[in-house]
């Protein structure tokens, strides 16, 4: 037996692309992020074969978690079939040997750009969200050093002031995506630009959520069963997108997050944003034996945590007062 027989064949890259030091660094940072929910942990973001800003943060977290027994799903704004999602999925499976899927329930790691699947994720899921801008205070405090002091002091008066201004000017919260949330009653967090629709899904969730920004070199986490509340005034409730009148043109599904498709005649049609979920619904309607999981919002639009979303605001707006 010679040394050559004992050595691994030369691959040219480490398992799951990142070298062992990079993965150890990331795992250590992830553990810290889980230990301090909502706290932004700086990390050494590596070079990857895709450009910064194209999901490198999420990809590094996925690569440091993934093993040969995992099943990976990659979502790009709800879709499994976008070029970016397909490329990331192919890269992950080529580097790690993990299975891939479009079925959220069958996946163990879900890397997502700006959506959370419609079906309720369980304890066997790790949701990895790609984050372009991890700092919720950036728009009120451009100086990162000062923003970190504000986080340390839990001084979020300016975040509330932004919401106050929105109510004064528009009579409602106008922030559509990345709605600021309070995690574990301590840190205000930008939940990556997921729509308001998905924000409640982070609250007391069974799954682990990891959020990572490769360009900004920050990652943070929402551990399972952690309180996540949107910032809202006591007399003006946070509301998710009002799509009660809309129905999916392919499946007829209601009260799920729908994309609006403008038609040539000026009208609009709607289609499910979560293509993995739509695929399952279509196959089920064709009579295939498929079990579709319970969703965060039922067909009447009720959220699965009773009482988390307050009744919609009807009638007089607070700015009329």
């Amino acid at each position: 037996m010679s040394l050559t027989d004992l050595a691994q064949p030369n691959q040219g890259y480490s398992y799951a692309f990142l070298d062992a030091f990079a993965k150890r660094e990331l795992r250590r940072r992830i553990l810290k992020g889980i230990a301090i929910p909502g706290y932004q942990v700086p990390y050494a973001s590596r070079e990857l074969p895709i450009a910064r800003g194209w999901g490198t943060g999420g990809l590094q977290v996925t690569l440091s978690l993934v093993g040969p027994d995992d099943t990976v799903k990659v979502i790009d704004q709800g879709a499994d079939d976008s070029v970016n999602a397909a490329n990331l999925r192919r890269f992950i499976t080529r580097m790690s040997g993990a299975e891939t899927t479009t079925d959220a329930n069958a996946a163990t790691i879900i890397q997502s750009r700006h959506r959370i699947p419609e079906e309720i994720l369980g304890e066997h899921h790790a949701l990895v969200l790609q984050v372009p801008n991890p700092e919720p205070l950036r728009r009120v405090e451009p100086d990162m050093a000062k923003a970190r002091i504000l986080h340390a002091d839990a001084d979020y008066g300016q975040m509330w002031l932004v919401l106050y201004e929105q109510l004064v000017r528009f009579g409602r919260y106008i922030q559509g995506a990345a709605y600021p949330v309070m995690v574990h009653e301590r840190f205000v967090m930008a939940p990556s630009p997921i729509p308001r629709w998905d924000t409640p899904a982070l609250h007391q969730s069974a799954h682990l959520t990891l959020l990572s920004a490769g360009r900004e070199k920050r990652l943070y986490a929402v551990p399972p069963y952690t309180n996540v509340y949107p910032l809202e005034f006591t007399d003006v409730p946070f509301e998710v997108e009002d799509q009660r009148e809309w129905a999916c043109r392919t499946t007829g599904a209601r009260n799920k997050f729908l994309n609006e498709l403008p038609m040539d005649d000026g009208s609009s049609q709607f289609e499910l944003s979560d293509t993995g979920y739509m695929e399952k619904l279509v196959n089920q309607q064709r009579g295939e034996p498929i079990t579709v999981g319970t969703t965060y919002y039922d067909d009447e639009g009720n959220f699965y945590h009773d009482g988390y979303l307050k009744p919609r605001y009807n009638g007089e707006r607070p700015s009329d007062a």
Binding site: D155, G157, Q158, W160, L161, Y164, E165, L167, V168, R169, F233, T234, D235, V236, P318, A321
Partner: peptide, 28 residues
Amino acid sequence: LRMRYSASGNVAERLLITGERTFRTLRS
């Protein structure tokens, strides 16, 4: 002052720092 926020928002900021979270109260 924050020159781009409303006048009442500038005043309300003080109240927000102390933990007032009711919009109508802030306003009045």
